[in-house]
């Protein structure tokens, strides 16, 4: 135990740097996935065929093993942070699209009928009715995506993307247990923190009338 703390203390700047790198890569990927996935979800929500096809594709992407995904991305985009982020975005898309769809489909047709009937425009219906009502579903998707991303980012070290995975893999090859545990510990703490934080945001954004 003491050796772990010693390791962290001695390498505190390195640990901080890798943690920041890890978080920024994961969160960047989740943000991009949100920018693609949420609007896409809203666009395809009312088209059964299209949404089934999109979910199908996202499902297939999800089943590709992580290591294989990095292997697929590498020949096209090379090594480093960019290909890692691309792979992470691909993984984050499914939960975000799926939950957005679920959220919208969960809105009762009556509510939409009332909104149209009282004379709201398309964008008013979107921003005043559909988004606020489905926000807890959407946030749920973002939480899943964020936690998964932080996990997967640990493997991104294999294509030289950096992050806390560096500690784990170098630690394993050097048989340096405090180093391995530091990497694992920090990525676990990160995942929990992000989940809790996003949960708080979800609570703030979700109307009391829906809780």
């Amino acid at each position: 135990m003491k050796t772990i703390f010693d390791f962290i203390y001695l390498n505190r700047y390195k640990v901080l740097e890798k943690t920041v790198e890890h978080v920024s890569m994961s969160l960047l990927a989740v943000c991009i996935a949100c920018l693609i996935g949420i609007p896409l979800g809203f666009m395809i929500a009312n088209r059964k065929q299209v949404s089934r096809a999109v979910i199908g594709v996202a499902n297939i992407i999800q089943t590709i093993p992580t290591l294989a995904m990095f292997a697929f991305v590498m020949p096209v985009l090379g090594i480093g942070k960019n290909p890692a982020v691309v792979a992470l975005v691909l993984y984050a898309l499914l939960p975000i699209i799926k939950n957005t769809l679920l959220g919208i489909q969960n809105i009762s047709p009556t509510i939409r009928k009332a909104a149209v009937g009282m004379g709201l425009t398309r964008s008013q219906i979107l921003f005043k009715v559909e988004v606020p009502i489905s926000i807890s579903f959407i946030m749920g998707g973002i939480r899943i995506a964020a936690v998964t991303s932080i996990g997967i980012t640990t493997i991104a070290t294999l294509i030289a993307a950096g992050g806390l995975g560096d500690f784990i893999y170098s630690g394993i090859s050097m048989f340096n247990m405090p180093m391995v545990i530091t990497g694992g510990l920090f990525s676990a703490i990160l995942a929990i923190l992000v989940d809790v934080l996003l949960g708080l945001i979800e609570n703030v954004l979700t109307s009391k009338g829906l809780q």
């Binding site: 009556t110 009332a114 004379g119 709201l120 009715v129 109307s207 009338g209």
Partner: peptide, 23 residues
């Protein structure tokens, strides 16, 4: 314009359709 028209006509339906996220 259908939006202008609808705003001048009150609409009440069986399932009410109140917005659950609003007070």
């Amino acid at each position: 314009d259908s939006i202008t028209l609808r705003r001048k006509i009150g609409y009440v339906i069986q399932d009410i359709g109140l917005f659950p996220h609003y007070t």
